[in-house]
Design a protein around this nucleic acid. Sequence first.
RNA 1: GGCGACAUAGCCAAGUGGUAAGGCAGAGGUCUGCAAAACCUCCAUCCCCGGUUCAAAUCCGGGUGUCGCCUCCA
Length: 460
Amino acid sequence: MLLYNTLKRAKEEFVPLTPGRVKIYACGPTVYNYFHIGNARAFLTFDVLRRYFEFRGFKVDYVQNITDIEDKIIAQSLEEEVPFREIAEKYTRAFLEDSAALGIKKPTHQPRATELLPQIIAAIEALVKKGFAYEVNGDVYFDTSALPEYGQLSGKKIEDQLPGARVLENVQKRNPADFTLWKAGKPGEPVWKSPWGEGRPGWHTECVVMSQKFLGETFDIHGGGSDLVFPHHENELAQALALTGKPLARYWMHNGFLNIDGDKMSKSLNNFFTARDILAQHSAEAIRFFFLSKHYRSPIDFTRELIEESERAVSNFYSALRAVDYKNIICSLDGSCQDSEQAFTEAMDDDLNTARALAVLFELARKCKNEQLPRSQREQAALMLVRLGEVLGFFTDLCQRLSEALPDLSRQLVELLLRYRREARANKDWALSDKIRDDLEHLGIELRDTPDGCEWKLKD
RNA sequence: GGCGACAUAGCCAAGUGGUAAGGCAGAGGUCUGCAAAACCUCCAUCCCCGGUUCAAAUCCGGGUGUCGCCUCCA
């Protein structure tokens, strides 16, 4: 299995530290707001990575942090005029709800930064003792000049990081590239006691502490959005190296950014969408399909047309399953679709080529629908479609989506109308016949006339 | 200024040396009172120029264009 490693700038064969086991850490949200559709891409990308490892038989430890103390949370608590803990609590809950709604599997561990304050402080103390950090007026900074390897992940040189127009000069820092480990508290801000006085942790240390607590000093994969390469992941890597002398993670993976209608998403452009907004209008599977139809490392452009297109594409899978009456298939996989599974695996093994993997699903869907093929072949295709689709996170609500959940009375009323329509058709009263069909369609019931009579189903 | 990415049909998107996966949309056909569904068929020579090679979307050089990171950010 090949994975693109940002650290090496190349695809590498994945070799786990422990055979049969993968330890993954993926950066989670800072809970100061509902997470947006760009965050959703990162969460979904690593959800699929995790699911694929499980499919390949690995035991997966998947840790995703929740940053519940950070400047933006404090800012939001001032804006909403409620204590910061309530803000963190509110948006943590929203994050868990929206993740679940997107069909993202729960991580095996989901620590919060405020749960590990003692460990974070201990890590900063250790860095100071080892000479990699220094304190100025209650702030503690990491001394980037003390670590020759600094910059290896992002390919940046400290010399290039001149305090230019966009970098605010911080007179307390010895070097512009130095970053904050501990921030002295101002009046009114949430603070914790520390050897440097009351304050709060900087952003980068918590991920080191949380990941190492659950995964050990060195783990397999560290992931996040490509904007995290610098400075966040660079700084994590530096701290871990300074602390243990060992690399934090062996593979660093980063997903590409999302644009809206070709522009960067931003509040000022009024094109800022939360995952919650999108979920209110589109199915989780369409959102997932939209992302998976493009390679995770490429930038992706979110438009209304594309998400609607994705909706239509996904309903293809369901019409395929319906065509073989999936719920009532009683046989199990017999190996006749092995070639599909192999094609799927080959695609996914190549740095998670989900776009190619989706093509395999569509080929299976076409097979399901092909009435020329023997029943058994079509059923096998359906079973494989679901097996592989689940790896990508589809079909989590299969039963619900396939069942026509109507109460008996409604069902009888539909049948009654169809009986009248049959009479109308027998009398060649096409106007009435079509009116019944159109009216039912408005109610979300689709009719199709077949040689065996009229069939109906609820619209997707 | 430093680092990096991308440019494939109407749209989205795979494909990194042997003559272009897949999806959406569209066209024609079978079927139908009509429609829907289903099935069949059709729909690109890969931004431009030059080079390497028997052979390039795929490698090299040069253009042009778009974008990202360097600052909180997935």
